[in-house]
Design a protein around this nucleic acid. Structure first.
Length: 182
DNA sequence: GTATGGATCTTCT
DNA sequence: GAAGATCCATACA
């Protein structure tokens, strides 16, 4: 994966990331579900501008943005758009491909990566990986199947800008966080 | 099968 | 002091 991939409109990157591979140590999975977030809409953390928390969103494309959700889960994002624009793609679900035993040990159950909080636990990704590079850091994203059929829908679990069709799933893939609506 | 509530922490007001 | 890009156990139909 190269830096130019992430320095594009965040919605394009979100669509193209489906089929790519996320790896952390011995564990890895194919991305089957993403959501795009952009500073221009209120569901995005960068909407409020630069703060201590959101600075990484405005930084180098291809950087990991990891934050704690509901006090319990770490959520993994890929910073997008040119430097200075606050945008990121949330990785919502993976199809596990390696390190399955490690994932099961961390999860303690068999649904390993079908949710944004679950996949970080399965991969062992935590807040320590925030602001690290997805190109050459501990968590990496690699090229995958660019021909994978993708469908778009509305985002999940948010209360603002709920109408934007910025969620992308691998069509028919059983590892998505929720069955495709409609 | 759907519905509800609790866990627990970071950030910003 | 409140809100939140979640997950899971439990209750009920």
């Amino acid at each position: 994966m190269n830096a130019g991939f992430f320095a594009r409109p965040v919605v394009e990157v979100a669509r193209d990331l489906v089929g790519c591979v996320v790896a952390h140590g011995p564990t890895a999975g194919v991305i089957v579900e993403t959501e795009a977030y952009h500073e221009s809409e209120p569901a995005c953390h960068a909407y409020v501008g630069r703060t201590a928390r959101t600075t990484v969103l405005f930084g180098t494309p291809g950087t990991a943005y990891v934050y704690r959700s509901y006090g319990i889960h770490a959520l993994l994002n890929a910073v997008c758009e040119p430097e200075g624009v606050g945008a990121a793609v949330l990785i919502r679900a993976l199809e596990p491909v390696s390190g399955l035993e490690e994932m099961r040990a961390r999860r303690g159950r068999d649904d390993l990566c079908n949710g944004p909080g679950k996949l970080t636990q399965a991969l062992g990704v935590e807040l320590a990986e925030n602001a690290t590079s997805l190109l050459h850091g501990p968590v990496q994203i690699h090229e995958g199947d660019s021909r994978m059929p993708v469908v778009a829908g509305v985002r999940i679990g948010i209360t603002k800008a709920v109408e934007l069709p910025w969620r992308f799933c691998a069509r028919g893939n059983p590892h998505v966080s929720r069955p495709w609506p409609r």
